[in-house]
């Protein structure tokens, strides 16, 4: 289903328009901290250079946003018969520059930090060819928007889950775009990325001349669920759902996820 976030975006944009007299203000909230928890962000792609595990910890609300990295952990990924140990290439980052996965294989992650063991499994889905990236000019709520549009054909005989990552002039957009093929199975898809430009100045919106790059990923079901629930409840927007931690595919006392995914990229200039 085109993720609920699209529907919510319309709804929120419309409600925003309606509530003309609303006002925003930054307030002070006294939020007591909690025990620090480990965060594991583990990635494995079908291309070399995509194998990366980031280990960090949670911070209290009042602290700054820099990452507290965790060093000295044992990180390994096993597939079929081979186990690969990932060395720490920089503080908190464990990589192998040449290792890459293949669609259809299942990978097992093990992270050992002191006494804490965290494991996970992810199966790399098949590659779905990204046919075309273009820009569609569409009227949305109160202004024209340049919407990146990705064409691809969804395979009919399997369940597919996708994630799109958007870069504008080299800068990654924070917005999450995930979708599955629940309603579009087997069809020639033309997926639009509805970028939330409500609070942006004209300069910051996607405009003529900008270089738009989209990374198309095919992800497994558990990773789709992770990003879907993250977008709905942990980004801080508190739009509708009761906030909760995303549904993680990690076993052990940690936040985060492990994703084995295929990746492709295309770039286009906004006309």
């Amino acid at each position: 289903m085109i993720s609920c976030s699209n529907y919510k975006r319309f709804f929120a944009a419309f409600v925003g328009l309606l509530l003309l007299s609303s006002c925003e203000e930054v307030i002070d909230l006294d939020l007591p901290g909690a025990e620090k928890k480990y965060v594991v962000e583990a990635l494995l792609t079908n291309q070399a250079g995509g194998c990366k595990v980031l280990l960090s910890q949670t911070k209290d609300f009042d602290e700054d946003n820099s990452r507290i990295t965790v060093s000295g952990a044992q990180v390994s990924i096993r597939s079929e018969d081979t186990t690969l140990i990932l060395p720490e290439s920089s503080p908190g980052t464990y990589t192998d520059a040449s290792f890459h996965g293949a669609p259809g294989n299942t990978y097992y992650l093990t992270v050992q930090i002191g006494e804490e063991t965290i494991t996970s499994t992810s199966t790399m889905p098949s590659l779905v060819k990204m046919d075309r990236l273009s820009i569609t000019r569409e009227f949305f709520v109160d202004d024209y928007q340049n919407q990146p549009t990705i064409d691809y054909i969804d395979p009919e005989d399997e369940e597919n889950n996708y994630r799109f990552v958007l870069y504008v002039n080299g800068v990654k957009k924070h917005q999450l775009f995930v979708m599955n093929d629940e309603l579009t199975n087997g069809n020639h898809n033309s997926t639009r990325l509805f970028v939330d430009e409500e609070d942006l100045d004209d300069e910051e919106k996607i405009k003529s001349g900008d270089i738009v790059r989209v990374e198309m990923q095919t992800i497994d079901k558990a990773v789709y669920r992770y990003f879907f629930s993250l977008d709905n409840s942990a980004t801080g927007e508190n739009n509708a759902a009761t906030p909760a931690n995303p549904v993680s595919n990690l076993q052990g006392n940690a936040l985060g996820y492990f994703s084995a995914y295929t990746t492709q990229e295309k770039e286009v200039r906004v006309p």
Binding site: A34, K37, Q57, D60, F61, N65, H174, G236, A244, N245
Partner: peptide, 26 residues
Amino acid sequence: TFPAGKYIIDDQTTYYYTKRNAYRMP
């Protein structure tokens, strides 16, 4: 439910929640 902490996923700030509905709106 307000965040008890925060961390970084995919280069952006993500919020960490512990207890449900343990906080109060003003």
